[in-house]
Design a protein around this nucleic acid. Structure first.
Lengths: 84, 84
DNA sequence: CCTCTGTATGATCTAAAGATCATAGACGCA
DNA sequence: TGCGTCTATGATCTTTAGATCATACAGAGG
């Protein structure tokens, strides 16, 4: 798995996808990340902004990592359900 | 180039590094990213938090991309100057 | 030493994120 | 139909990021 984050919405998709793959509810993720369910709802939907701290907390709780790389031409994106 | 972002400070290092490689001053980056020099100073130093919007604006201006990947064991990090 | 350029910092103000509570909607299932 | 679970939303309050201005500080070169 390797997804690009160009806009905040991408982040939301990746998080929702990973959370579901792990069969976690937003509430579960909330407890193990320290971020509130309501906030997770907004982040996943891409509603409003997010602080880096919050992003990192969520990703860590989902065993995901954030990477920075020099821009590459091939934009591999593997979201299944874009519209949910 | 491919760096991990575990804590906000990592982000700052990557940005500073990329900015210097492109021979840009903080003021230059400020104008082309729409983020203020003072803010860039804080971000690079890891002082205080940052919003995802700001992060994305800076990375875009530096031709860097943000990626999310499943946690891998090998933590390849290639920061040269960690202490500056 | 003085100046120039780049970076850090400090103060104030505005906007927005996140905590918190309460509740509404959606959906599956008995 | 009604219950239980999960997600969305709405309101309020606190905290903080970022804009903005002004200025200090550090280093290089003359």
């Amino acid at each position: 798995m390797q997804n690009f984050v160009r806009i905040p919405r991408d982040l939301g998709h990746a998080i929702r996808q990973a959370r579901r793959e792990k069969n976690l509810t937003q509430a579960d993720l909330a407890t193990r990340s320290g971020v509130w369910q309501e906030t997770i709802s907004k982040v996943e939907a891409g509603r409003g902004g997010t602080k880096l701290d919050t992003v990192l907390a969520l990703l860590a709780a989902l065993d995901l990592e954030l990477l920075i790389s020099t821009r590459s031409k091939g934009s591999t994106s593997d979201f299944d359900n874009i519209f949910d």
